[in-house]
Design a protein around this nucleic acid. Structure first.
Length: 269
DNA sequence: AATCAGGAGGTGG
DNA sequence: CCACCTCCTGATT
């Protein structure tokens, strides 16, 4: 597995620009976050404690989402190589620029004949992927893609809230991006579970029918949850405490055969 | 060492 | 008020 995805590596990372400030407001942490003590911030490249941290975390997962086919994650046998370090390079946080979608993908400065061709292909591929993934990303960040798009593209192209719906409990129950309601943890977990392609490395079904799922990477799941709730200090210890609160409420429980990091939705579907 | 269980107080929407 | 968040003690894997 190891090697980087060819599809992405063919693109200069710097070309995908997604100007963070305009798009994703990382709430200026105040109040509660004042008591930020040196929690481990795994993902950040090196300098910790910057407000961008949540962002870089997001970009990484976003990068992950941009990988079209990376099927190896599914078959993770025992003794995985370089545990804990999936093909995510903190250095090349991809950022996506409005211009990328706008049509100025000057990949090869020199300029060649085939350029036009591949440019178009790459462009449409990238745009397609980006648009698709923006929806997912926006959901996780609790902002509407429509709002994002309105600012950055010509009107009439997309309307995400109308939503495409591929999965059973997607739209009404789980999709919180258009409801304005604060998302619940169980909803968030289901959202991740709905996108195995993007998050299967972090959390996946063991038995979807029974609602049994396993958190494969507790740190990342906690991190995503922290991003979503704007709680930079979130960790699995706290996330799992919240999950345990669900025991009494009958929302989530431990499966009959209790295993580490494995939980079960009491009411699947 | 990581995860699990659950008490207890605090907080933000 | 509720759904967490935070912190903590102690047990279990």
């Amino acid at each position: 597995m190891g090697s980087t995805s060819p599809s992405l590596s063919s693109l200069p990372p710097s070309r995908l620009l997604l100007s963070p400030n305009t798009v994703f407001r990382t709430g200026p942490e105040k109040g509660a976050a004042g008591v930020l003590r040196p929690e481990r911030q795994d993902w950040s490249p090196s300098p910790p404690a910057t407000p961008e941290q949540g962002l870089s975390a997001f970009y990484l997962s976003y990068l992950d989402m941009l990988y079209p086919e990376d099927s190896n994650w599914a078959a993770k046998g025992p003794g995985v190589s370089t545990e804990d370090k999936p093909p995510e390079e903190p250095e090349q946080c991809p950022v996506i620029d409005s211009q990328a979608a706008g049509g100025s993908l000057d990949l090869v400065p020199g300029g060649l004949a085939l350029e036009e061709h591949s440019l178009e292909q790459v462009q449409s591929m990238v745009v397609g992927e980006v648009l698709k993934d923006i929806e997912t990303a926006c959901k996780l960040l609790n902002i509407t893609a429509a709002a994002w798009m309105k600012e950055r593209t010509s009107p009439g192209t997309i309307h995400f809230c109308a939503s495409t719906s591929e999965e059973s409990w997607t739209d009404s129950e789980v999709d919180s991006s258009c409801s304005g309601q604060p998302i619940h943890l169980w909803q968030f977990l289901k959202e991740l579970l709905l996108k195995p392609h993007s998050y299967g490395r972090f959390i996946r079904w063991l038995n979807k029918e029974k609602g049994i799922f396993k958190i494969e990477d507790s740190a990342q799941v906690a991190r995503l949850w922290g991003i979503r709730k704007n709680r930079p200090a979130m960790n699995y210890d706290k996330l799992s405490r919240s999950i345990r609160q669900y025991y009494k409420k009958g929302i989530i429980r431990k499966p009959d055969i209790s295993q580490r990091l494995v939980y079960q939705f009491v009411h699947p579907i």
